[in-house]
Design a protein around this nucleic acid. Structure first.
Length: 702
DNA sequence: CATACATGAATTTTT
DNA sequence: TTCATGTATG
């Protein structure tokens, strides 16, 4: 029976080589499941041993979650004291660091705001005069892609291909002007502005180049060209002991974010830009069985190779990959449920040797190309009383009530943040309607000031009624008062008291009950608010992370915490440890693994995905197909012991049902005929056993 | 004319 | 699930 491989206690030769290569640039090509996080953490340990101070070592990731994990794993290896001063940051938080220190050199004042994507949409709708969300979204999309290529509006105007892009470039110009006026930046600016800053300012560049003795970058294949330039600048410079001291860790075969600006050209460029680059492939896989790895290798062999690399494992073949042909989506979901139930019913027989006998729900993942595919699976799982979670569901920080509060906090930090002002001034309602705000906006626009700054102007007062002016002034005064207190309040206890007092003063709880028609919903929103208050005040008390032990950091004022709020926003991952089946898109599954994985809807049109009608150049089509193939590869390599791949015989398309064609990637897996087909009678028997088995399923999440 | 409800369609996502 | 569009109703 299948036994999953187990990572050894020591590093293998390739890993050792990567860890001990300290002099000069290093590229680690880390295949799926090859122990790349181990390499990064051990290398950090080695660098410390070699005499670098913790604060001279930077480890850069893409997500807060990855940063957190790296911090914890490093802490476990080198101890809390050394780990504390390491610079473990996301690209974006590093950008914030640079801008907070030197932003004045690109025209930013010290307290700038960071707009989230909702704010950006609002500004764009406004700037472009669009009533239509779709249009604003497509502008946002286009503008972001341009920014990720290092273009500003004038550059964009040059490359705009069609009418739509021409308009987007014009809107981008207005957008840039607004952001400058608001003293606000968007997420893309957090990379591009630091780059601009370091390019322009010799003093700042020298300082930042001298700061790190070694920079490690995780998921290097996901970098976009702006991130590449920023990194390159950081690890260049005159000091030979600093220059070229970096380790990039990535896997060209897992590059699946080309559509948002990531480019594997960055991998190609690396050996060119650094002729003494040491390239070390990690090919030994500690995750999957031989059959799974073989399928993965066979699929990815269809792509042109950038670097030579082939995964292998010391462990046995394990179970064959199962091919599941299903009639339709419903049938597919039913079979996935049966798959889960039957494996669980068989219990320890095929249990992963790292699991303890009983197979847990959390050992299963159902992965798919597009979010909407989750729907049917949710239905069937609920019906079978199998608990699940949908990854990439609404984040705690996306909830309206949390955004309301964040708007206030942002406004405290930067009173010129107009989007935050508009949200805060109207939540809860305080007798300031759109007429008043319209006049205020008109006034601010005329004098090129922010809304807040216009509040107390005498000439504005002349245009508005006494009541409106009264409410506006009251709001302004309260905000000033609150800002003053937030500036001087530190420590968890005091911070919490301040925040609760604020909520009480603005009547937020009442507001929730008034605006929500169900009392239950209002209560749950209020609970979120209280969680948020807790979260903020813990950070004021100096707590950095709560999971896997708490870091004691410096105490911070409420204002300081408010400042970093849009960046820290990492899920207060509650219920992370629950025993539930995971439903996830293939994209969101990268970096994760499960003993038993079901890849759903592996059909032509879905994977590889085919947009309905679009005329694109042949080479674009080819490179998209390559990325789809990598996506399939990522999906396959998530599985440790059992992999099931399902296709649909019938597929809904528009209002009619069309014949489903199995994805070409299924053939590319080259599953042996014998290993793919289960004897139907055998299957029926298993199914029956599974259905009649007692399954102690907990109720699904709400 | 505006609101309510139903119906249908849907790339992928982080900061 | 969410978002947008269409139909029916006041």
């Amino acid at each position: 029976m299948a036994t999953a491989p187990k990572p050894p206690d020591t590093l293998n030769p390739a890993q050792l080589q990567a860890v001990h290569h300290l002099a000069g640039p290093c590229l680690v090509l880390a295949g799926a499941g090859s122990g790349k996080t181990r390499v990064i953490t051990h290398k950090i340990g080695r660098l410390l041993q070699a005499g670098l101070a913790p604060k001279e070592i930077a480890a850069i990731t893409f997500t807060n979650k990855a940063a957190q994990e790296m911090r914890e794993r490093t802490k476990a290896l080198v101890g809390a004291r050394a780990a504390k001063d390491l610079v473990v940051a996301t690209f974006h938080s590093l950008g914030v660091r640079i801008l907070r220190a030197d932003g004045s050199k690109v025209g930013l004042k010290e307290q700038f705001s960071i707009l989230d994507s909702d704010d950006v949409m609002g500004v764009l709708r406004d700037a472009g005069g669009a009533s239509d969300n779709k249009l604003a979204r497509s502008w946002q999309w286009t503008i972001s892609l341009w920014k990720n290529q290092g273009l500003d509006s004038s550059g964009a105007a040059g490359v705009a291909k069609d009418d739509h892009e021409q308009v987007a470039a014009r809107v981008m110009k207005l957008y840039e002007e607004r952001l400058a006026a608001y003293q606000a930046v968007d997420f893309d600016d957090l990379i591009s502005l630091p780059l601009k800053l370091l390019q322009r300012d010799d003093e700042a560049r020298a300082r930042w180049q001298g700061m790190f003795g070694h920079v490690l970058v995780d998921e290097y294949q996901d970098t976009n060209s702006v991130q590449y330039e920023l990194l390159k600048l950081l690890v260049s410079g005159p000091d030979p002991r600093r220059a070229g001291q970096f380790t990039a860790v990535g896997d060209d075969d897992q590059s699946i974010y080309g559509w948002r600006g990531a480019t594997i050209a960055n991998l190609r460029r690396l050996p060119q830009d650094w002729p003494d680059l040491k390239v070390i492939p990690l090919e030994q896989n500690y995750r999957s069985t031989g059959n799974i790895l073989r399928a993965a290798n066979n699929v990815i062999a269809g792509n042109p190779k950038l670097f030579e690399k082939k995964l292998w494992s010391e462990f046995g073949d394990g179970d064959p990959v199962r091919l599941m042909e299903c009639d339709g989506e419903e049938h597919e979901a039913e079979r996935a449920v049966a798959f889960i139930q039957s494996l669980r019913a068989q219990g320890g027989a095929i249990a992963d040797d790292r699991a303890s006998g009983q197979i847990k729900f959390a050992d299963f993942a159902i992965l798919y190309r597009a979010n909407h595919q989750a729907r049917v699976f949710e239905q069937k799982l609920r019906a079978a009383q199998i608990p699940y979670k949908v990854s990439g569901g609404q984040s705690f920080f996306d909830r309206a009530e949390i955004k309301d509060l964040c708007a206030w906090l942002r406004l405290l930090v930067n009173q010129d943040d107009d989007p935050a002002f508009l949200r805060a001034v109207t939540t809860p309602k305080r007798g300031i309607g759109h007429t008043t705000l319209g006049k205020l906006g008109e006034y601010a626009g005329r004098w090129k000031t922010s809304l807040f700054e216009s509040l107390f102007s005498d000439s504005l007062a002349a245009q508005l009624g006494a009541k409106a002016i009264g409410s506006l002034h009251e709001f302004g005064r309260y905000l000033n008062d609150l800002e003053h207190r937030a500036r001087h309040t530190t420590g968890a206890e005091d911070a919490k008291a301040l925040l609760l007092d604020w909520l009480k003063t603005i009547g937020y709880e009442q507001h929730l009950y008034d605006s929500e028609d169900s009392e239950k919903l209002a209560a749950s929103r209020w609970t979120n608010v209280l969680d948020f208050v807790d979260w903020v005040s813990r950070r004021c008390g100096g707590e950095i992370r709560q999971e896997g032990g708490t870091f004691e950091g410096e105490k911070q004022t409420v204002l300081q915490v408010a400042q970093t709020i849009s960046v820290i926003i990492s899920l207060a991952e509650r219920g992370d440890e629950q025993d539930v089946v995971t439903l996830s898109t293939l994209h969101a599954s990268k970096g994760l693994e499960w003993p038993h994985v079901w890849l759903a809807g592996i059909n032509e049109g879905l994977l590889p995905f085919k947009p309905d009608a679009e005329d694109v150049a042949a080479e674009v089509l080819a490179s998209r197909l390559e990325e789809e193939r990598r996506l399939m590869y990522v999906g396959i390599t998530r599985a440790r012991t059992t992999l099931a791949v399902s296709t649909l015989r019938r597929r809904k398309k528009g209002r009619d049902t069309v014949q489903g064609i199995p994805s070409r990637f299924i053939a590319e897996m080259k599953l042996h005929e014998a290993s793919t087909r289960e004897d139907p009678r055998e299957r029926l028997k298993k199914l029956r056993a599974a259905l009649s088995a007692k399954v102690d399923a907990a109720p699904p999440p709400a």
